[in-house]
């Protein structure tokens, strides 16, 4: 009887500890993801290749490390529910290209700089990895990645630069673009692809 009781207690304790252990593993995995991402970004910055190649390389990095379907879907807001799976897939593709172009263009300003990973911690929606971007002629600034394993693999789903949140910015932008097109997702996809 006592043995069973002890075994039960032990199992209970193990169960109580398990989420903490899993969290620690998630934090390490998220940090490793951002370490690899930052190493690739720093390599692109240091390579000094022409702008269009930089944008192409940024697009590849975004595809590899970001959860593009989730970011794209979030940017559509409530309209995502009205979209067909085919529309969502085409929108995700167009949105990814638009994001790579928009953020990739900024890489020119990063030449001579680098990003340093600072810390990682568990937060309610996943893991937050904080980094500092150190660029020439600029005060260093904070860039935080939100990482989740909700899709089965660690991917980042948000980027926050000095408090400014990419998911919210892009949702604001896409909502305005949709309003201008009378809520027509197909027109939005066509126009995003042409941007």
């Amino acid at each position: 009887m006592t043995l069973t009781r002890r075994a039960l207690l032990g199992a209970g304790a193990a169960l109580a500890l398990w989420p903490a252990a899993a969290r620690a593993q998630d934090v390490a995995a998220a940090r490793a993801l951002v370490d690899r991402l930052v190493a690739e970004v720093n390599a692109v910055i240091a390579s000094g290749v022409p702008e269009d190649r930089m944008i192409a390389q940024f697009a590849q990095i975004f595809q590899a490390y970001a959860d593009a379907p989730t970011i794209a879907r979030y940017s559509l807001g409530a309209d995502a529910r009205a979209a067909s799976p085919d529309q969502l897939a085409r929108y995700t593709q167009a949105f990814s290209n638009y994001v790579a172009e928009k953020y990739g263009r900024r890489f020119r300003e990063f030449v001579g700089g680098e990003i340093v990973v600072e810390d990682a911690r568990a937060v309610p929606n996943g893991i937050e990895v904080t980094t500092t971007a150190i660029f020439r002629n600029q005060a260093p600034f904070r860039a935080d990645f939100w990482v989740s394993e909700a899709t089965g693999q660690p991917k980042f789903f948000n980027l926050i630069i000095e408090g400014v949140n990419m998911l919210l910015s892009e949702r604001t932008e896409v909502q305005a673009l949709l309003d201008q097109r009378g809520g027509d997702i197909d027109r939005l996809i066509a126009d995003l692809s042409a941007m």
Partner: peptide, 20 residues
């Protein structure tokens, strides 16, 4: 270049100021 510059400026200001 943004579709709604008022809404973008508002969002960016509020978030950055709270961060600051």
């Amino acid at each position: 270049e943004s579709a709604d510059s008022y809404a973008q400026a508002r969002l960016i200001y509020l978030q950055n100021r709270r961060f600051e």
